[in-house]
Computed example of a mutant assay.
Amino acid sequence: MQIVPTAVDFIGNQKRAKTDQRDLGQADFLRLMTEQLRNQDPLKPLDSNQFLGQLAQFSTVQGIQGLQSSFNSFASAQLDDQALQAASLIDRTAMVSSSTFQLAEGGSLRGETQAPATGRVEVEITNASGEVVRRMTVEANGPGKLPLNWDGITDAGEQAPAGVYRISARMNQNNTSIALETQVEARIESVSFSPGGLILNLVGGGSIPFAAVRRIG
């Protein structure tokens, strides 16, 4: 007697086949089940539990496929929503974790850091060549946010030319100099997407992940 594969076996074969990309629908499944019952061994009829088990497996496969389709639709909608939100950030200013900033012609810098304790914070501004153009001392009255603003005037009393600069901040604690993380205000030039999430492209400040943003202006 000819051995007829079960409908569940057919599903597995369909998944492994390279030449047939057609999905097994409900009508196909029922037709195969009917053929299986018609060609079964009369002396060894299909057990009812096995029959119900195949139905349950088919329902599970259909459910997983439906869930995957719903998840893909949800992910697509989330991506579209993220793109719309990202577009609204262009040309806005953001306070970001960075030591690099773009100084406009006749411009200034707005930045900040987190002081760990009361004391003096030594700030240095260097140009693209690594030359220190301004040294400042800012007093921290206690732990917390500390503004680091620069009017764009060098130690020589001249307006610094437009360009890319770096800022660094250090504080002495127990005779040890500690480097502090700096945040600078920068304008968002454009946004892009990566597998890791949203990327902000800053004017003169390179590209940073959205997680580096501390505040949107």
Rank of each mutant, 00 (worst) to 15 (best):
Q36F: 09
V133T: 09
S76V: 10
L24R: 09
F29G: 06
G66Y: 03
R110A: 11
V132K: 09
L32A: 08
K18N: 12
L32F: 03
G130Y: 00
K44I: 07
N49S: 07
L84Y: 10
F101Y: 11
D20H: 02
G130A: 00
V121C: 03
P42I: 09
F51P: 01
G25H: 04
G119Q: 11
A56C: 00
Q85F: 06
T118C: 04
T118V: 15
L30R: 12
P45G: 04
L32M: 15
V61C: 00
K18C: 11
Q62E: 09
Q40V: 09
E131W: 01
T60G: 04
R120N: 15
A104G: 13
S59M: 08
N39G: 05
N49R: 12
G119D: 11
A115L: 10
T118N: 11
S70Y: 02
R22D: 05
Q85G: 10
Q78P: 01
D41V: 01
N39T: 12
A86M: 10
N49L: 09
M33H: 03
L37A: 09
R31F: 04
N127Q: 05
V132P: 03
M95C: 08
S98F: 03
S108W: 04
R92G: 01
F101G: 04
L43I: 00
D23L: 14
R38L: 10
R22T: 15
F29M: 13
L67R: 11
T34G: 06
G25N: 14
L37V: 12
P42L: 15
S59K: 12
T118Q: 14
R16I: 15
D41R: 10
M33P: 04
A83Y: 05
S99M: 07
S97W: 01
S129F: 00
F101E: 06
S129G: 09
S97V: 10
R134D: 05
M95P: 01
L37S: 03
